[in-house]
């Protein structure tokens, strides 16, 4: 029993380590894709913490990624670069710069705080209402970050942010997210929340506050998403469009394709879809495959990912992993199976 549990943590971690290992073996240009995939793992694990455990849909998590990226980006850009990119910044923000680790911690804190503010009213909703309201949050965040130039670059791009998210930082970040998500799921909070997902009425009947459990998960996943935003802004120049609808779609697709209700599914989905996506991104700029030159037109990526997502939803709604945690098929006790088969 304990070994099975340990395996549920080690399998996703091993997958992250494998991705990191692949990253050390390939060329520098391919390494960028691996780093990106590892940052995607953090975002998708953040989505899993809330959506997977609560069963409530959220289109709004990319806004936590966005505020995390803004916090880390604004505060870690060198002071002398700030006036050129962000001329209208609040004085206090313009005069200070923090280091890499501090900016990541700050990104997580800002993500959590924003998720708390948003979650306090919104966690009363579920189903369709939650979907549309969180979509509204994404729209509002995008709109405000785009035009409010006192807190960031507005329409400009976050250039000149130190690019500290290399392979090491990305894989450590992904591992940290996996450990946090696993820990949460094993804690009382995580168990209660998944009880509300399975049967909200029964959970209420034994005294679980659905609202409070969802809020806890929302804030934790907001922190992880903000952290991912911090990693992202230290990886490549971010602007408002790179943390908006496309990223929302891509990360939700990863979660759905992998299997929303398990950590294993989140990691598998993030890495599998990232792999397909990077391959197609390369193919869009032309590659050699089986001795032939392949050159897909721009836009192929989203077509393939969209089609994959629709297919998985139709054929295997629980995702590639079936929404189950990792287990070795032989280790599963047979007696249990026959007992529940009746």
């Amino acid at each position: 029993m304990r070994r099975a549990l340990l395996l549920q943590l080690l399998a996703p971690l091993a997958l992250v380590a494998l991705a990191a290992l692949v990253g050390t073996l390939v060329s520098t240009s391919t390494e960028t894709y691996v780093i990106n995939a590892l940052v995607n793992v953090v975002i998708v694990v953040a989505l899993y913490v809330f959506i997977g455990n609560s069963g409530v849909l959220s289109f709004g998590h990319i806004s936590f990624v966005a505020v995390g990226a803004w916090a880390a980006g604004v505060l870690s850009m060198p002071v002398e670069e700030k006036p050129a990119i962000m001329p209208h910044l609040f004085g206090l923000l313009g005069e200070h710069t923090v280091g890499n680790i501090w900016s990541l911690a700050l990104a997580a804190a800002v993500g959590a705080a924003y998720a708390l503010v948003v979650g306090l009213p919104l966690m009363r909703l579920s189903g369709l209402g939650a979907g549309i309201a969180t979509f509204g949050v994404l729209e509002i965040t995008h709109n405000v970050l785009r035009y409010w130039e006192k807190i960031g670059p507005g329409l400009n791009t976050f250039s000149a942010v130190p690019e500290t998210t290399g392979l090491l930082q990305a894989s450590l970040g992904a591992a940290l997210a996996v450990i946090v998500a696993f820990g949460y799921r094993r804690m009382r909070f995580g168990r209660l929340l998944s009880a509300t997902r399975e049967d909200a009425a029964a959970a209420r009947a034994v005294g679980v506050s659905v609202y409070r459990q969802r809020l806890v998960a929302f804030v934790l996943s907001g922190a992880l998403a903000g952290f991912a935003g911090g990693l992202l802004v230290h990886m490549l120049p971010v602007n408002t469009e790179s943390v908006y609808l496309d990223l929302t779609f891509l990360t939700l697709a990863m979660l759905v394709i992998g299997g929303a209700t398990s950590l294993w599914g989140a990691v598998v989905g993030a890495l599998a879809v990232s792999a397909v996506d990077s391959f197609l991104a390369e193919a869009e700029s032309g590659i050699h495959l089986f001795g032939r030159s392949v050159d897909f037109p721009a836009g192929t990526r989203i077509v393939v990912v969209g089609a994959l997502m629709a297919l998985v939803l139709i054929l295997r709604p629980a995702g590639l992993t079936g929404g189950r945690e990792f287990s070795v098929p032989l280790a599963r006790p047979r007696r249990l199976l026959t007992k529940f088969a009746r």
Binding site: V56, L57, F59, G127, L128, A130, G131, F249, L252, A253, V256, P297, A298, G299, T300, R301, I302, V303, V305, G306, A307, M309, A310, L313, I314, P317
Partner: peptide
């Protein structure tokens, strides 16, 4: 039609996927 028995939230995600799919097909 294949998703008719799923929850409204799943169908919402599916239409989201279809929207992106069609948009990218137009782009292509």
């Amino acid at each position: 039609r294949p998703l008719r028995t799923q929850s409204p939230a799943v169908m919402l995600v599916a239409t989201f996927a279809v929207a992106f799919l069609l948009q990218s097909i137009a782009l292509l």
